[in-house]
């Protein structure tokens, strides 16, 4: 029953990882940018929610209404002002720029907020759970996280497949120069895609903060690695694959946690490396290119 419980918790944890991975996947799929600062963007989202709560007393759910679009706008401008220029300079430059951002954010956060955890209380949501069977309870928050993750992936999939903007994004991923010949400024399309990635990252960051009861400046580094691992385990280019990858990672971590509380991160990393060696294309074959 302990194992079953860990399995279920792991699957639900996978929802969080999938949410973290989704933004990374969008940025890579459409812009070919690997955003090394992705985890930091998530952290910033969580910090904004925490600050809104501590200074204005705004409820977490309410703060999402501001935080998510706000980081979307930030993503739009980061793309337009920094990354677009970097993209024109070659393959290394976008990486180096995002790495620079990944260094700036946590250190600035430590200086501004110290290394203490900034609380994101959720009332009794964090402790509420549903009993499925004897000894098997699932938390309401993890369940909600998984639900949101699934909805986000489905929504993103639909958005890319069905809307005009989604079509432009896929076309820009294929051939941005030709898209320009069709009267569409690919730089705007890229910027919207990055805005979307940032907004989803912020949402994921807030959910992470709720789960952990708060956020620290060091979380971004963990999150970017989790997100990346979920993307690779799931298989590049598949949005549903990120969910599968997230679940594999989540299960690996929670099962390892049953053995020893020190093991989850190490085992998660080792599972990732094993997948990389044994099945480098990921566990889900990609059909849709994104």
């Amino acid at each position: 029953m302990v194992i079953l419980n860990a399995l279920v918790q792991g699957v639900l944890l996978g929802g969080l990882f999938a949410m973290a991975a989704l933004g990374l996947s969008i940025a890579f799929g459409i812009l070919r940018v690997v955003n090394l600062a992705h985890g930091e963007i998530m952290t910033v989202g969580a910090y904004l929610a925490a600050v809104a709560l501590s200074t204005l007393g705004v409820n977490v759910w309410l703060s999402l209404i501001v935080v998510v679009p706000l980081l979307g706008v930030v993503g739009y401008w980061v793309q337009r002002l920094l990354l677009q220029r970097a993209l024109s300079l070659g393959e290394l430059a976008p990486l180096l720029v995002t790495f620079g951002i990944a260094i700036i954010i946590p250190n600035a956060l430590i200086e501004l907020f110290t290394t203490n955890k900034q609380a994101i209380p959720t009332g009794d949501l964090a402790v509420r759970s549903v009993q499925l069977a004897e000894g098997l309870r699932i938390g309401v928050l993890p369940l909600l996280t998984m639900l949101v993750a699934v909805l986000l992936i489905a929504g993103t999939q639909l958005f890319l497949a069905r809307t005009r903007s989604g079509r432009y994004m896929r076309a820009a991923a294929d051939d941005s120069e030709t898209l320009r010949l069709m009267g569409v400024d690919h730089r705007r399309v890229y910027a919207y895609a990055m805005g979307l990635a940032f907004a989803i990252a912020a949402l994921g960051g807030v959910f992470f903060g709720m789960r952990q009861g708060g956020v620290t400046p060091f979380d971004g580094q963990l999150l970017v690695l989790f997100a990346f691992e979920a993307v690779i385990i799931g298989g590049l280019g598949s949005l549903w694959g990120t969910l599968a990858g997230g679940i594999v990672l989540g299960v690996a971590q929670t099962l390892a946690g049953v053995v020893s509380p020190e093991l989850p991160l190490l085992v998660g990393n080792l599972v990732f490396l094993a997948v990389l060696v044994l099945r480098p294309t990921g566990i889900v074959r990609s059909k849709v290119v994104v």
Partner: peptide
């Protein structure tokens, strides 16, 4: 490319 970069980071963590 970029995924190589994060991959080396994961290896360092491991």
């Amino acid at each position: 490319g970029g995924y190589f970069a994060i991959g080396t980071w994961v290896i360092a963590e491991a």
